[in-house]
Amino acid sequence: MKLKLLCALLFLSSFTYSQVYSSSGIYLAKEYNKDQALYKAKDFVMSNLIDVSTSPTKFEIDPLAAASSGELTSLMYTCDEQNVSGLVLGFFGDRWNESGVIYQAYAFKNLTKEDAFEILSKLEMLMDDHYRYLVSDSDTNNLSFEYDDMTFLLYRNGGTKIRVFWNGFDAEWEETAFNRTRRRFERKID
């Protein structure tokens, strides 16, 4: 009896006190969303992409779309005063340190306006040009390529998926979020 009680208490304590949040994942909201990405990306843009001085610097940053996985968010930025604009990809995910402790990490990848147009156009072209190949054997046929320091993997599984590998992150960008990013970026940047 004492052994059963001890086992039950150990089992219960592992669910009530743990370092990592766990759940069934059935009705959960996204772990990361556009609001959180926007909040963190403002610092990234100020610290890395524009020159901030003692005089006020005006700049805009707008979240375009977040992948339903919560792993990737696209944001557009412009600073007319400094003639700087582009697309920031926000990557979010779990990491492990040397001690095996899991923590939540994020990082931002800047794409200049020209680079953003190039990669968005290339992805759209590849999805169109290789649609028959990808759809002929869903989740088996894949297409991959590198751009700068990112690697892209395209495949179909209930729609076209784009996996983006960068800086240790592996983020899934589904077709809906990609198309929303592309349309909004093209409309707002020009």
Score class of each variant (00 low, 15 high):
residue 22 S to F: 10
residue 151 T to D: 09
residue 101 V to S: 08
residue 15 F to S: 01
residue 22 S to T: 10
residue 53 S to F: 00
residue 164 V to W: 11
residue 164 V to H: 04
residue 146 E to F: 05
residue 190 D to C: 02
residue 60 E to L: 11
residue 181 T to S: 03
residue 190 D to A: 14
residue 33 N to K: 06
residue 66 A to P: 01
residue 137 D to S: 12
residue 21 Y to T: 09
residue 107 A to S: 14
residue 45 V to L: 02
residue 51 D to L: 14
residue 87 L to R: 00
residue 11 F to W: 05
residue 78 T to C: 01
residue 129 D to W: 10
residue 46 M to A: 13
residue 10 L to T: 02
residue 107 A to W: 05
residue 74 S to H: 08
residue 59 F to E: 07
residue 84 V to M: 15
residue 102 I to W: 02
residue 132 R to M: 11
residue 139 D to V: 10
residue 93 G to R: 04
residue 60 E to K: 12
residue 153 L to M: 14
residue 94 D to W: 03
residue 148 D to E: 15
residue 156 R to A: 11
residue 138 S to A: 13
residue 15 F to P: 02
residue 184 R to H: 13
residue 170 D to F: 07
residue 132 R to F: 04
residue 122 K to W: 09
residue 150 M to G: 06
residue 18 S to K: 12
residue 26 I to F: 03
residue 128 D to T: 05
residue 57 T to N: 00
residue 114 E to S: 11
residue 77 Y to K: 02
residue 113 K to Y: 08
residue 186 E to G: 09
residue 189 I to Y: 05
residue 142 N to G: 00
residue 154 L to N: 06
residue 173 W to I: 04
residue 26 I to M: 14
residue 55 S to E: 15
residue 132 R to W: 03
residue 70 G to W: 05
residue 180 R to P: 00
residue 130 H to V: 01
residue 112 T to C: 08
residue 47 S to E: 13
residue 82 Q to S: 04
residue 89 L to V: 07
residue 16 T to L: 13
residue 48 N to E: 14
residue 109 K to D: 05
residue 143 L to Q: 11
residue 92 F to W: 08
residue 10 L to F: 06
residue 81 E to L: 10
residue 57 T to V: 15
residue 184 R to C: 01
residue 50 I to S: 01
residue 104 Q to L: 12
residue 190 D to W: 07
residue 33 N to C: 08
residue 53 S to W: 07
residue 72 L to P: 01
residue 161 K to M: 11
residue 169 F to A: 04
residue 28 L to P: 03
residue 107 A to R: 04
residue 22 S to M: 12
residue 21 Y to P: 01
residue 42 K to M: 05
residue 16 T to G: 14
